[in-house]
Structure formats: C-alpha cells, structure tokens
Design a protein around this nucleic acid. Structure first.
Length: 818
RNA sequence: GCGGACAUGGCGGAAUUGGCAGACGCGCUGGAUUUAGGUUCCAGUGGGAGACCGUGCAGGUUCAAGUCCUGUUGUCCGCACCA
C-alpha cells in the first residue's frame, strides 16, 4: 500500500544516490529548469507553491529519463516587506522570523520530493548573496546605469512613514490608520532600464514565451514614435528665460503633430518641477490648492478616461511655434509628469480627453482635420484625415503632414522627430530596513562615493528600531550611518535606504550556477555553459516587472563583460492559480485554505501531486476540489493491483499482439508530447487508458504474455515522473534496481501506430450522416465510389445533387449537395 | 480607465490548431460480488420520442467554426513600493 512512508524511503535513497545533483561532466546534455523562488512566509507551503514546484519537477524528471542532465536548484526570495511588518507588529526580528520560515519551508520542499540540487540553494537575505546585489549596483553606477533623482513616495502624515502601494487602500487612505495618504518627494536611486528599451522590445521575438506575456511586455515598454515640439512661455507679458538668458521652452511630445494648428491650450502635469515658475501670482493660491489635491490621487484614477476632468489656469501663456499665437497654459491631473515630457499640447477637436476638458472649461475647439472622403464627421474626430485651416499644410493628408511639419520644425530648431516610451527607469530605493543596503556614502568633501568592492558586503545592522517615525529605519542606527569616506577618510554618511527586492531576483538565476563563489557573483565560464535557463516556470503576475528587470540586468551584465548571452530565460511557462473551492483566492479570512501537509500525510505526496497534475489544466489553474483525490488513490491502487498480478503470473511467449503494440505506442506518443507541453492532465489520461486496457487483458488470466509484462513495465516508466515515489516502489517490486529515473524513457515505435483500417465520418453539407470503417490506404476515388454505393446514400442527399466531394485524409468525407 | 486572459455536460477538464464536440476522471443511474455500509467489478450517462438541437450572448466568413472575424456580456490577472 502506497503511503507517505514510501515517500520517506525514497527521499532518503535519492539523497544517498545524489539523484538531483548536476554532473558538470555531462554539460553538453545540460537542461536548466528553474521555478520562480518563493518568499519564506510564516504560513507554510501552500497549494500554490506545490503547483509551482511539483509539476515542473515532473517535467524535469521526464527530461532526465530522456537523457538530459538536469539542473534544478531552489532558493528563497528572503528580503521584503512582510517580515518587516511582522516585526513592527510582534517585535520578532525579520532575520529571526525569516530564518525560521526558511527552515520550515526547506523541510516541506524536501517532502515534496522535488529532484532539486540542494547544493545550489540560496537565500537573498544572506550577506553572501546580497553582497553581490551591492556589487551589481556598483557596476551599474560606474557605467552610468544607476543615478539619483527626485521621485514621489506615498506618505502617511499620521504614521509618519512611507507606504507601499499595497498599503494604500482604494479610497486613498492608509491601511493602518485610515488617514488620507499624500505624496512626498525624495531623492532616490534609479536603474536606467530605458537605455535598453529597444533591445528589450526587439529580442522578445527570440523567446519561447507565451505570446500574451510578450504582448504585456511590449505594451509595458510602450514605444511610441512622434514629434517633440517646443513652445516658448510668456508670463505677465514677458518671455520666461532660462538662467543663461535663452528663452525657456516647454517641450511637448505628440504622435499627432498634424493637428498642430488645432492646439488651443497647453497642459502641464501638476507635479512638474517647472510648474511653480510658470504660475502667476494671481493664480498661485489656486494652483497650489490643486497640486495639493492631485498628490492625493492615484495614478490609475488620474488616467481613467471616464474621470471628470479637473484643472486650473496657471496665468501664463505659451507661444504657438508656427502661428505665434498666444495660448493659455493650464495644469491638470490627466497629464502625468513621468510620461513623455509631462506637458501635452491640447487639441480638443481631435483628442477625446482634451475635448472633454475644453468643454468643461470653455476653451476654444478648432477643427483642423477632415475625413479623407470629405464625409461629415463629429468632433472629437481622432482618426487620420486631411488637413484644413492649417496654413501651408492645408490639404495634406495626416501622414504627409506629420512628416512635413516635423521636418520644418527641425529646420527652425523648434522640434524634431522623437521616440518616447511608456517604460520608466526602475526606482530601486526603498525606505525600509529588511533589504540590501546601498553601497554608497555621502561625503561633504567628495560627494557621492561608491564603496570599493573590497569593502563588500556592507552588512545590514541587526540592532535597529523599525517602528515607523518618519525616516528610514537605518537612519536611526548611528553605528551604520556614521562612517568615513573611502576616498578622503573624512566623516561621511551612508545611504539610509535599501534596494528593491526585485534587484535580488533579477540575477539569482546566475548565482545558482556558482553559489559558493566568494570572489565573484559567478564564474563567467560556468554561467555561459549552464545558462540561459532552458525552462522557467512561474506566475504570470510577474510578466511586466520581474521578467523585464531580469532581462534588463542580463543585457547590462553582458555589455559589462560578465556573460556572453542576451536573455536569461529561453522558455517560459506560467502556471495557473489554484483558488479555494468557493472560487475565491485562498486565504485564512475566507477560511478556504487547503494545507498540503495534511493531504501528504494522509494520502502520500504522489497522490497530491497527481491530483494537481490531473485535475487542472496547468496554465489555467482553477478551483480546488477534494473529489479528485479519491480518483487518484483509486488510480494508484489499480496500478499496484496490476503490478501484483503481473509479477505473480507466469509469463509466456505469444504471437505478436498488434492491438496492444498500438495502444502502448499511442500512450508513449501522447504522454510524451503532452507532458513536454506541460499538459499533464491529458498525459495522465493516456496512462489511464493504457491501464484500463491492461487490466481488461489480465482479468481471469492465469498466464500472461511477455508483451503484457513489458507493457506494464512501460506504463510504470511513463508514470514515474508524475508519481516518482510510487513508481520507484513499483519498479523495485518488479525486481528492477533503483533508480527508475536512471532508466531510459520508452521509445516510440512509429510503425506500430499504422493501422490497416480506420474510421472516418461521412458528412453531407457538414452534417454527419454515418461513420465508416475503411482501409487506411484507400484512394479517394475508390472511397467516393464506395459511398455512392452505400445503401443509405440516396437518403443522405435527399434528392439533391452532389457538386463537390471533400476528403480530409483519415478523418472525414464531406459531400456538398445543392 | 488602460493592458492581458478566460467562458465547453451536474462538476474538473479534452478536442490533431478550421475537419466526427464532450477524451480521461468525478458524480449520478442500473446490475454483479459482498452484504451493515464502504471497497471492487460490469453497463449506461449533453438535451430531445424523433427529424434534429447543442461550446456565455448576437451577427458574419467557410463545403466545414468551440476554434477565424465584428459586436456584446460576465469573471479573473497586471498597472511600476506585495512578491
């Protein structure tokens, strides 16, 4: 009887025989499979973890049997907000709680029976790991890919603390104290991911990733080609000048420069640093009030097209670059500072948002585009068309005008062709404790000074007060903050912030390969040999951020000479989400959680694993159901019964059983093809079919054929990746020595799949009339004759005339009648 | 709001990618064994007496549509400080 004891037995044996350890001498057969590592949370391994790890492990085991040298490491994404929040609540230090959680989860992962190479584990909160985050930061800094600038953070005035977006409720209040959250500008570190925007876009086509994920990245990067055009500004009747005396210009990005003559006002983002200078005394109070209000709104809400438009006149005017006309400059929250230049030229006649705004505030609306076919159209008319009332450009098509106006503006130095991206640089500063300290000091003499690599790791101090009171926790640790400048030796201060945890996960796939290296993050040769990851498995929620950051860091490391390939993850699969039986996300509060430990103890890990593999479409996920567990225990015990009978009965040689050979090979083909595509449910369905067949064959038999015995053995080999402990046990029962995972995967005999007779459908106008057994190699003409001679033929065509015969070989014949 | 997906029997889910809808399993019904129930085994199981009708809804393309196109409804995921 299979149980959790069998799991234990084989887990110990596998550890002894080092089943999961990668053998570098077989590097030419290497296959690097990686599941996204998880956050060590106190609530133990949940069903989602199992669904993330067990099915890919089955895939890996199959690949091992197919001859690959599999590398499957495991680690923990151990820095992050939850441990720190937990510390604030309970006083338990993040390091202590995290360590304990990692221990528990490691034990649970071991019980999962994954074929992991345990030597290659890592935890990102370990100084041996995060020192290389710091190293990475320094490389980016030295090469101009890390820089500081001011950026807003969510600020709770009551808690006196920075909040994560997650901690701000939908109505814009703090989750802890319900105070209205506002924004505060801080100088923070950024990684220049935008420098790689084009390559990140272009190389998507080389990846074996789900199309929808590529689309998400493509939209996230949001490359947009257009024109940048400059407007000079007038305040109180005078030109506004730069410090050097040249006229200050507002640069506007637009994809529709053909509508330039329809511009009736400009809008600047409320958080734009220029706004203050461009507000007149008379308007100051009103503008300030408006800016204040905007700081409390979320970006998502601001960009909603249905949101009622609000805005304020700044009192200043801008000068139209071609007509010289004076236009009002407004500020409104539908313009976002971080996209484009933070200023838009408003063309109410040809843009829906500008139109709505102009109607509310009574601003002029000027049509400059008509439809090409000169039919009457309503405003706002947002399509391309033909220019009207546009000076010298009147009569041109939109396409022609875009090219012409852009060229003319460039000639006058009033604009240029320009490409902008929705993608923004990656903000990596976090005003928190539980993360990687930033390896930079600020010296009054030398300014911003990077730590020399020899001084890494810059370790996180243990004794720190995390209670929120207005500053980053590290600020309060004098021992940490007060330091000397590595350049001049004078007094200096450290950076009080820590790095975003996405920095950890942007390169961990390389550290696994060489995780004990103390001289470097990894050895170049080793990484080049084992990477990129051949199969990466994890949730689709990471499509835009983690997966893009990893790609960016890989390219940066390549350009800095640390590795020789372009992409970190060649192939990617997303598992679906397992919800509670009520269709809601599993959570303690909903009371719908399923604990893997209980199921494993009761039924054994393989039953749980098979249930996950069989009852869900892997990439879809779905609602948890208990019923399937019983079905699997039945499946398992039926196989055991089959094995028992097969080893008990005498075996004799019999004439070749063509039908059995067909079924066996049909199973090999189906199970292999489906499992390779992560379609485990159908792969297992094929195994069930073979089991049903074998079971029928041996019923009431006192002797079995050699072929039946071999088919049973084949069934076990095919089952092995999906029920590793159980299959290993059955394999031993049949007298074979372990491990079954060192046996070769069954090979397909294509010839056995060729049938003499096949069944096809006969249709009339696409409607099925009958099914026919025909010789597999029948000629189309013979088939047609045969059908014409069928006793029901006249009945089928019901007096009409066949005009066309469509034969889809081996599948159907459709008679088109009229 | 923007972006990405999904919708098939009572249920989980299949469908060679435009070619016989419902594989496999759960559940259910009947039968056999046992008989206290469960287990196990066998048969049946989308609807409809039937011609036929059936893949969220409404159109369309095609000899042929779950699959492609247009529109529509509902659910889920992401939106840059959760990871």
């Amino acid at each position: 009887m299979y149980s959790v004891d069998i799991d234990k037995k084989w887990q110990e044996k596998w550890a002894e025989m080092k089943l999961g350890e990668f053998d570098p001498s077989r590097i030419d057969k290497k296959l690097y499979i990686l599941e996204m590592f998880s956050y060590p949370s106190a609530s133990k391994l949940h069903v989602g973890h199992w669904f993330n790890y067990a099915p890919p492990d089955s895939w890996a085991r199959m690949q091992k049997m197919r001859g690959y040298e599999v590398f499957q490491p495991i680690g923990f994404d151990a820095f992050g907000l939850p441990a720190e929040n937990y510390a604030i609540k309970t006083g338990i230090h993040p390091q202590d709680s995290t360590k304990a959680n990692i221990e528990t989860m490691t034990e649970q992962l071991y019980k999962l029976g994954g074929m992991f190479d345990w030597r290659a584990n890592l935890a990102t909160c370990d100084p041996d790991y995060y020192r290389w985050n710091q190293w990475l930061f320094l490389q980016l800094f030295k090469n101009g890919l890390a820089y500081r600038k001011s950026a807003p953070v969510n600020w709770c005035p009551d808690c006196q603390t920075v909040l994560a977006n997650e901690q701000v409720l939908e109505d814009g209040t703090c989750e802890r104290c319900s105070t209205e959250v506002t924004k505060k500008n801080l100088t923070q570190w950024f990684f220049k991911i935008t420098a790689y925007a084009d390559e990140l876009l272009d190389k998507l086509s080389t990846l074996d990733w789900p199309e929808q994920t590529k689309k998400i990245q493509q939209n996230w990067i949001g490359r947009s080609e257009g024109t940048e055009v400059s407007f000079e500004v007038e305040r109180d009747g005078e030109r506004v000048l730069n410090d050097d005396g040249t006229p200050l210009t507002l640069d506007v990005f637009t994809t529709r420069i053909d509508t330039l003559f329809g511009v009736t006002y400009l809008v600047i983002a409320p958080e734009s640093p220029l706004l203050e200078r461009l507000t007149t005394e008379a308007q100051k109070a009103e503008v300030d009030r408006y800016v204040d209000k905007t700081l409390k709104a979320s970006e998502i809400a601001r960009l909603a097209t249905t949101r009622e438009k609000t805005g304020v006149f700044t009192g200043c005017h801008v000068i139209h670059p071609i007509t010289g006309e004076k236009l009002e400059l407004w500020t409104a929250d539908y313009v976002i500072a971080s996209y484009g230049t933070g200023v838009v030229m408003a063309v109410p006649a040809h843009d829906t948002r500008d139109f709505a705004f102009a109607e509310i505030f009574g601003l002029p609306i000027r049509r400059v585009i008509d439809s090409v076919d000169e039919t009457e159209t309503e405003l706002p008319f947002v399509e391309y068309g033909k220019l009207v009332d546009s000076g010298a450009y009147t009569g041109l098509t939109s396409e022609a005008a875009i090219a012409q106006i852009t060229a003319d503006l460039a000639k006058d130095s009033k604009g240029k062709a320009y490409i902008t991206y929705r993608l923004r640089d990656w903000l990596v500063s976090r005003q928190r404790y539980w993360g990687t300290p930033i390896p930079i000091v600020y010296c009054d003499q030398c300014g911003t000074v990077p730590l020399p690599e020899s001084m890494l790791p810059l370790t996180l101090p243990y004794d720190v007060a995390f209670s929120p009171d207005g500053v980053s926790p590290l600020t309060k640790s004098d021992a940490f903050m007060q330091t000397t400048c590595p350049t001049c030796g004078g007094p200096a201060r450290r950076d009080p912030d820590t790095l975003d945890t996405f920095v950890c996960s942007s390169w961990y796939q390389f550290r696994f390969v060489d995780n004990h290296n103390e001289e470097a993050p990894f050895d170049k040769e080793k990484v080049n040999a084992l990477c990129p990851v051949d199969m990466y498995v994890g949730g689709q929620e990471h499509a835009a951020m983690h997966l893009l950051y990893s790609r960016f860091i890989t390219k940066a490391l390549r350009d800095l000479g640390y590795l020789d390939f372009d992409e970190p993850f060649q192939a990617l699969v997303h598992q679906g989400m397992i919800l509670g039986s009520d269709g809601q996300k599993m959570s303690k509060s909903a009371g719908n959680t399923v604990t893997p430990d209980d199921l494993v103890d009761q039924y054994g890990g393989d039953v749980f694993r098979l249930h996950l593999l069989f009852s869900f479409a892997y990439t879809e996920g779905g609602n948890w159901n208990d019923d399937g567990v019983l079905a699997i225990t039945r499946f398992i015990s039926r196989i055991e019964a089959l094995v028992d009978k097969v080893i008990e009965l005498p075996v004799e040689k019999r004439p070749h059983d063509k039908a059995l050979a067909y079924r066996v090979n049909y199973t090999i083909r189906g199970a292999t093809q489906d499992a390779l595509k992560f379609q485990f449910n159908t792969a297992i369905a094929r195994l069930m079919e073979l089991l049903n067949h074998l079971q029928k064959m041996i019923t009431d038999q006192s002797v079995i054929s050699e072929e039946t015995y071999e088919a049973t053995r084949t069934l076990l080999l095919l089952l092995a990746p999906f029920a590793p402990h159980f299959a290993e046990e059955m394999n031993e029962k049949m007298g074979y020595s372990p491990s079954i995972f060192n046996e070769p995967w069954p090979t397909l005999d294509v010839a056995a799949l060729v049938l003499d007779e096949i069944e096809i459908a006969v249709q009339v106008n696409g409607q099925i009339k009958t099914r026919l057994m025909i010789p597999a190699d029948i000629e189309e003409a013979d088939l047609i004759e045969r059908i014409k001679g069928h006793e029901s033929f006249d009945n089928w065509i019901a007096g009409k005339t066949p005009v066309k015969w469509i034969y889809v070989k081996g599948r159907l014949l459709n008679i088109v009648v009229k």
